[in-house]
Every structure is written in C-alpha cells, then in structure tokens.
Amino acid sequence: MFDKDDKIQLRQIIMEHYTEPDYKGLIENDKAIIKFQDSPTCSDEINVQLLIENEKIIEARFDGNACAISTASTDILCSKLKQLNVEEAKEQLVNYYNMIAGNEYDESILDELIAFWEINKQGNRINCALLGADGFKSILNKEV
C-alpha cells in the first residue's frame, strides 16, 4: 500500500516509471491489438498494445514519446492490466477514471496508480494521465 499523502514517494513512483518503464516496447505478435493515441493538448504520441487470449490479457505494452505523466501512468496501467480478464480490466479502468475525475474510487486496487490521485486539480494534466487508459479502453471495448 502506498501513502497518497507522501508527495516524495508519489513523485518517485512517477519518475521511476518515466525514466525506466517496464512495459515500453511493443511485442511482435499478429494477434496483439495496437491503438495509436495522440494527445489533443500536447505532442504526446503513443501506441498501446494488448494481447488477449481467451478473454485474458496476456501482455500489455506501449511505445512512443510522451511526458512523465503519460508515460508513467501507461506503464503502471500495463502492469495492472496484465493477467486480468477483460471484465476485470474494464473494472480497473473505471476505477482509475473515477479517481482521475475526482469521483469515488477503490484505493485498495490502485497500487502505484495512486500517484495520480490529485491530477484532477491540474486540468492540463488530465489528458496526460488518461492517454494510455483511453487506448486500452478502446481496445477492451473493441472500438479499434
């Protein structure tokens, strides 16, 4: 569990996932679904990728150039979505969207995503925190 009031810890989470993302780099698999995401408010551009087999997410990846918030949130989301079934992944995203919007959310399932809990106070950063999530949501909802 992470202390959402520890600003230093939250910054460290973001910077670790920005400077050394675990899930950056797409896999080569014809069954993997890729969704291009570009920000309407800045120059961030990423591809998000899910490999789903039997309604279970086998792999979650991303690649591209984005700011610290976009990169870190997408990297953490990859780790959270991997190994979930599609419905669980959708629930995880709904919970994340609720947190970003400042609505009620379940903190216990967010893990490192809690680093973005106050992003709704920075309106210009909301798109950054949702760039990867929007792509994953599109893939899961078969909108690609």
Rank of each mutant, 00 (worst) to 15 (best):
N65T: 15
D134L: 12
L113D: 01
F62N: 01
E59Q: 14
N85Y: 11
E107W: 03
D63N: 14
E104C: 01
L26S: 09
S39K: 11
A89W: 06
S79W: 02
V86Q: 13
R125W: 03
D5A: 03
A68F: 10
Q9N: 09
M99L: 09
E143P: 03
F136D: 04
Q12I: 13
L130Y: 05
L131W: 08
K142N: 15
I69R: 01
H17K: 11
G135M: 05
D63V: 02
T71N: 10
P40N: 15
N85W: 11
N54Y: 12
F36C: 06
M99G: 01
E55Q: 15
E88V: 01
M1G: 13
F116C: 00
K24Y: 11
F36R: 15
S138N: 15
N95T: 07
F36E: 14
L84Y: 07
C128K: 08
F116T: 00
S43F: 11
D3G: 05
A133P: 03
D111M: 07
I69Q: 03
F136L: 06
K142H: 14
N103S: 14
K4H: 02
S108N: 14
I76R: 01
L140W: 09
E143N: 13
K90G: 06
C42M: 05
F116S: 00
I33R: 08
A133M: 07
K80F: 05
Y23E: 05
R125A: 00
A60C: 10
I119R: 00
E112F: 00
C67Q: 11
K24C: 09
N85S: 12
D5V: 00
A133C: 12
K24S: 07
L113H: 02
Y96D: 01
M99Q: 05
P21Y: 03
I34R: 14
E28K: 15
I109P: 04
F136P: 01
A32V: 04
W117T: 00
A72W: 00
D6E: 11
I13V: 12
I8H: 12
S108M: 11
G102A: 13
E59S: 14
S138F: 11
A89C: 10
I13Q: 04
G25M: 09
Q12E: 14
E28Y: 13
G132Q: 04
A129Y: 07
T41I: 14
I76H: 03
S138T: 11
K56F: 09
K56W: 06
K121F: 09
S79N: 13
N127S: 15
A60N: 06
C42Q: 07
F2S: 01
W117Q: 00
H17Q: 10
L26V: 08
I76V: 12
T71S: 13
E91P: 01
I76F: 04
T71H: 09
Y105R: 04
K35I: 06
L93P: 01
I57M: 08
E112H: 08
N124M: 14
D44V: 02
E55W: 05
K35W: 07
V144L: 14
